[in-house]
Amino acid sequence: MKPMLLLGAVIALLAALAPFLSIYGQHIFVLVALYGAVALAWNILGGMAGQMSLGHALFVGAGAYLSTALYLKLGVSPWIGLVLAACLGGALGALMGYTVFRRKLSGVYFALVTLALAEMTLHIVSNVSALGAANGLAIPARPSLANLQFTSKLGYCYAALAVLTVAAIVIIVIHRTRLGYVFLAIRENERSAAALGIDVVQGKVIAAAISGALAALVGPIYANYVLFIDPESVFGITLSIDALLFSFVGGLGSLFGPLLGTVVLVPLTELLRGMLAGRLAGIHLIVYGVILVLVMRLAPRGLWGLLSDAIARRRA
């Protein structure tokens, strides 16, 4: 089946499923879709182009803060904020990529630079009183479509699903065009790619810009869902590590492995916390850790690899 058709079918299925979930189930749905979109965005730069980022929270946070500040200070609709957030994320990604890749920083150095940029932004925002400083910004609950706030969780499910769909479509388009081959060539061997006439720096900058724009799209939806943002929750390293973890567990570089990782790990985290958190502090995280080790042991190429192998064996 063609990827776009398959994606359409999956999205339609998810959209049809959402109304039948419990409210808590819909909360998990929103989280899966939002984290899934961040993981897919991360995968463009980290998986497809092979540039490991430890600072993707920078884009999510920038998007969340831009849209929220515009709404609270100037009354700009978060829908416009959403578009501006994507532009800002893209610009930040391009700027970061241009400054870093032009100086041939890659691998662990690139990862550290991205981490440092996200942390620097966290501390700068923590001291800007117009952005609520370290107290963060609370968004007043005024449910209306214009405010990107919904009376029911279902609205958030569809908003988050829409962002996820955009990320998935972009991934498929990249995969099917020359750009996908450029990213692949850069990931596999930068020198060979350059010898083939590929502008490596430009390729990486484009990957960072697309990745940043998509990750930033998540910010406004997250902010209007939680109705509160503070520097630590949207710029903090935890979010960046989550994106990386979901991609690793799902299958680094594979088209939808990061999404599969999110689909498995986010509900698992919620389920474990709901069932175990009250019994012994930290037990749910220990069980989560054991399950992660199991996944790594049983599926070194990620869950996507495990699934692909199983399908290939069945066909053989």
């Binding site: 989280l31 939680v226 916390r273 958190a277 009250g278 502090a281 749910h284």
Partner: peptide, 16 residues
């Protein structure tokens, strides 16, 4: 409920 020190989990746990 365990918020795991994160706002989004405080929301999730309260919802639950």
């Amino acid at each position: 409920g365990d918020s795991q020190s994160k706002p989004v989990n405080a929301v999730g746990e309260t919802e639950r």
